[in-house]
Design a binder for these strands. Sequence first.
RNA 1: GCGAGGGUGCCGGAGUGGUCAAACGGGCUAGCUUGAGGGGCUAGUGGCUUAGUGCCUACGCGAGUUCGAUCCUCGUCCCUCGCACCA
Length: 957
Amino acid sequence: MLDLKTVADRWQKEWENKKAFQVEVKDRKQKKYFLTTPYPYMNGYIHLGHLFTYIYPEVIARYKKMQGYNVLFKFGFHCTGTPIIAAANRIKEKEPKQTGILKQMGIAEKDIPKFADPQHWVDYFPKETLKDLKRMGFLIDERYTFRTTYLNPTYDAFIRWQFNKLKAKDHVKKGKHPVIWCPKDNVPVGDHDRAEGEGETPQEFLLFKHQLDDGRFVVSATLRQDTVLGITNLFVHPDIQYCEAVVDGEQWIIGEKAALALQDQGHSVKVTKHIKGKELIGKRTKEFDGSHVLILPATFVDPNVGTGLVHSVPSDSADDLIALWDLQKDEATLRKFHLNVDEVRSIKPIPVLNTPEYGDVAAEAMLKKNKVTSQQQRQLLDEIKKELYRISHYTATFNAKYKHAFSKNLEGKPVHEGKELIKKELIEKKFALPYYEPTGKVVCRCLTPCIVKVVENQWFLEYNDPTWKNEAHACLDQMKLYPEKVRKQFDYVLDWLDHWACTREYGLGTQLPWDKHWVIESLSDSTLQMAYCTIAPYLEQSKAYGYAIKTLDDAFFDFIFLGKGTAAAIEKSSGIPKHMLERMHEEFNYWYPFDFRNSAKDLVQNHLSFTLFNHTAIFPKPQWPKSYLVNGRVMVNNEKMSKSKGNFFTVRELGEKYGPDVIRLTAANAGEGIDDANFDMAFVEAAKKKLSDVIECAQTHYNKGRAQEKGIDRWLQVKINRSISEATKNLDVMLLKSAVKSAFLDMQRSLAWYTRRTKGDFHKETINRFIEVQLKLLTPFTPHVSEEAWHAIGKKNFVSLEPWPEAGFFDEGTEQAEELIEATLTDINQVLKLAKIEKPKKITLFVAEAWKHTAAETMQALLDQGERDFKKILTELLKNAELKQHAQDITKILPRVIKNGAAPHASSQRKELAAMQDAKTFIEREFSCTVEIIAADKSTEPKAKQSMPGKVAIVVA
RNA sequence: GCGAGGGUGCCGGAGUGGUCAAACGGGCUAGCUUGAGGGGCUAGUGGCUUAGUGCCUACGCGAGUUCGAUCCUCGUCCCUCGCACCA
């Protein structure tokens, strides 16, 4: 077997030497195709997951190239953001896990300390990634690749321009923002920096202030402001330490954790003393509706949740109700805290909501349904809490108590409709205020539990602006989406996006030009860089073009991208010659907008949507994105890729082991559409063999064979045309897996059948066409193999630069005839099996009577018209004198035809006879016996009557 | 919960109102290749049945629309992704 890696080496060198894929804008009238894909993050080598996404633009790029487009496949290396800095710090600290990651990648022990400097990552990985991509044979012109970060000054200038533009349009505003925060490190803690609590987010609670007689407030936290009128009492944990603090000038009693968190949420907090929960028991507080309630002891209260104080709504909280019941039964405890037993026992749930199927005291119904007996059944109670929350929120309605309590009559209204209003008014009346807490426990890598901090002076991109949203929708509307069904998701996301915190206090990135304290966050700086790419070579390799750049200010980018100002003015400030400025401007206009961008589906709700917003903000409509493709994630042998499972592969090691073409083909064949794809290692093995065969086949058969053309040759010609047509169709709609099938697997199948039919006696012209077309169709997927075979058959140019083949003629009759032969083979086999004859001496085949063909044709015509009435069809058929003679047979066949909704494929007896005659020797050879072919009407054999158009009757002996 | 997508053979996956037991790939079984190495070829791979190429059953589950549904409608169960300030 050929070594495909050597093959790849050879052609990569050739392409390089001849600069086969160097991008040039020679003729601005030439049609162009500009492909982009989100750049990989440079904290490691790229892996199979990256490759799967990148195989789309790569295959399409090569396909478009062969179609005569001037193609630019953009590639960048992502370095902004926090992960690189974080990883570098961990190397600095010699953290074993991080060191291990580098080692596993094959970085030499002695080189590892270099990675303590973030700059080293930014230097090292882009270089190596480019190698990997080239090794895979990607159609990338490296002059058009670039790194993101301030370490690349021209890119940095570009991002400043982008943000100044956004600011000028009022899309960037200052505000407050809750984030998960480490109180020790004093930084926000993203998912990747957490020791525990990935996926937890800030959640908005309300603090309820319950006033004691002495003016102090006992403060509880809740998500259920809808039940505010159902409060019957408060619960404290008798043994927990609470603190008394001056919060925004008021005396509050709250848990210690909440006191800490409040400080980070913009409140002034001064703790004055600590008190035990039991000190509060028996006191009374005044509620929102003016009622007074008792403070009672309960042990389910968790000091780490909310304020560590709970207001009790036993009608709609199972926890509260069961705790109340437990307490009411527990006379000892009541006495211990000097509570009035009768008074406590008289506390009853106050109905506030009507919950379908659960009545007006939903908590009670819920407890009974789940047979809860004690507040100690924590797990069950937690489940009930969630369930009840869900049911109340979506199905419950407010009762009469809500008629006048708020500015609008809420009686009978669903809870989810009234909740916002209640919140607003409770806050206005100073009974409540917002408070944030993580949705679950979050622990920083430094092992400190995290809180929610409300960051002040944060900069936001105002994606919630309705006018901007409309623009983004307009942009989406004019785009092609692959697959189209992702449109709904995009529409939803565009509406859902709120303002986006676009700056960070640390990380690699461009400084916010007007507020240098902040660094632009990486999802925000990557939304427009496709434009930068079009001129990247002229900025990053200015020396090659004979000038040195002085400064790039906003006027420069305004000129290049928006055509504002004059080249002459910018020549001075930038140091770039006028003609180069003009060239950049024109080339940008030539390449832009991008025609294609794709990513895995997880970027839909951020990057891909942001890109739409940013384009509409800065570019005029003609420069808006043309299409998006959204792909699934890649699995390996149907399992999620993961290092622990041992199915994690870097592109590097795959290339090393199998060579690029096998991997490219397998990746393209892994799947299409939005569902997760499957990289099948079994296919990898099969592909190795199949690809070697392609080269071998070309070498063996090209320019050999007979001169005289036969029927079966015509069949292969038709099949070749089918494959061309199908492959083209599939590539046009970005269906790679389907394209692999039509461009390769179907072709190979046709060849196999052709070989069998001709017994290897090929027609020279036909096999030549087959080989040439096969190599061209394969080129986008396996360019090295194609190139190798192309030259093996004596071609001197690159197949990569050949025009994409055009489908010639089609001939359904020929295809049908061949299908008849194939079906006949299958049927003969079945008959032989049924008749228990292993070695037949003679096979007689009866081609259906002429009238059956006529009947089939008429039936199909009627069926196509929608006719399903037995009698009508029969009458119609019998109008034909020829058919009338066979009325009895027709009445037998007809019901089945009607049931199937389709008649047998009508051909003509003459054609079927000819096709069978043509294949006679072939069938004889296949079964090693004599074959006779007879028209059914010319025979007295009873079985001959079983023949139908497209199905011969068979007698074996 | 919300939004989106999906549930088809031993597996991956086509099909999207009729000729389609289900393309294409993989796996498995049998036979052949008269000869060794995960090679090639042929046949088979839902059930039942058969002097004959047939019949029945199936596309998560239940109901409906239709002459006819894997494909449309409704209900139900299950799975995947996302729900953010993070690349």
